[in-house]
């Protein structure tokens, strides 16, 4: 009886979550689908974005995200592996590092934006540019990626490490062949979370990658991100709501594509490794 109640509650929560998000997404789809067309994706914006398309903005968004990922993936994974595999859990230094990371995950994005503005744009003289935006986003994503990856690695049973050590396998090999594949769903989840946060970021990017909605010619050019575009259209441009919802829909579709491909990659890796292991 209690068991049945529990099952019911679980299905109910799932239902509530699904409905709430259904409401939100259907709102975006209904309002935005009218704007969606091939020319919306391939034209330059006109009349402050009320008309025309969002092609340069999509390109800028992808460039900013790409820059951030190139930096954050090696840094984040490396740091997480070091934390999880090459240090003693109980050591003071590791615990304080972990605490610092948690605090940094909580720095409001607008503060990252101001930091990026002062440090990357100003101190390193990168100006308003895609590079500054990408670097700022990388700072934001770093703590999230490190903590989720570390959690994934910590969850791998210690038996496997002991077995590896007993067989004389180097930690590096063990890591690559067993631990990372095993933790790959967690790593992917962390990566997707941080990518999600990055694509959704507005506050930090207004201050760093800027407002220019022209096609960027290099990473040193200022480029407007999609989320910034949506914010500007909905809060600052008279009569921009339709285009704002249209852009939001494009952004959501982009996130779906990124998510699907990342999940597929991680599953492919996991299966390949684990199958060989067994």
């Amino acid at each position: 009886m209690i068991d049945r109640c529990f099952t019911f509650i679980i299905w109910l929560t799932a239902g509530i979550v699904f409905l709430a998000f259904g409401w939100l997404i259907s709102e975006v789809v209904v309002q935005g689908v009218g704007k969606l067309s091939w020319s919306f994706l391939t034209d330059e914006p006109a009349r402050s974005g009320r008309e025309g398309g969002i092609y340069p903005i999509i390109v800028s968004t992808l460039l900013i995200l790409g820059t951030a990922l190139v930096i954050v993936i090696p840094l984040g994974l490396g740091s997480a592996i070091w934390l999880a595999e090459f240090t003693k859990k109980s050591s003071k230094r590791v615990q304080s590092t972990r605490l610092i990371l948690d605090v940094l995950a909580g720095v409001p994005s607008i503060v990252f934006g101001l930091f990026g503005y002062a440090f990357f744009c100003g101190f390193l003289d990168l100006g308003f540019s895609i590079l500054s935006g990408g670097l700022t986003l990388a700072c934001m994503m770093l703590p999230i990626l490190i903590r989720t990856t570390e959690a994934g690695l910590t969850a791998v049973p210690n038996d496997w490490r002991r077995a590896g050590a007993a067989l004389g396998v180097s930690r590096t090999t063990l890591l690559w062949q067993v631990l990372l594949p095993y933790a790959s769903p967690a790593i992917t989840a962390g990566l997707l979370l941080s990518i999600g946060r990055a694509t959704a970021e507005t506050a930090a990017l207004i201050f760093t990658s800027g407002y220019v909605d022209r096609m960027p010619e290099s990473l040193n050019d200022s480029g407007r991100a999609l989320a910034v575009h949506i914010y500007d259209l909905s809060m600052n441009v008279v009569g921009g709501d339709k285009a704002a919802y249209g852009s939001a829909l494009v952004l959501i579709i982009m996130v779906v594509i990124i998510n699907l491909s990342a999940n597929a990659l991680s599953e492919f890796w996991l299966e390949k490794k684990i199958n060989r292991l067994q």
Binding site: V70, I71, P74, L75, G78, L124, L126, G127, S218, N220
Partner: peptide
């Protein structure tokens, strides 16, 4: 990873 990061930084600065 570190190298790319540093090269990107320095390269970008001079290029800029």
């Amino acid at each position: 990873g570190v190298a790319t990061f540093l090269v990107m930084l320095s390269g970008a600065t001079t290029f800029h």
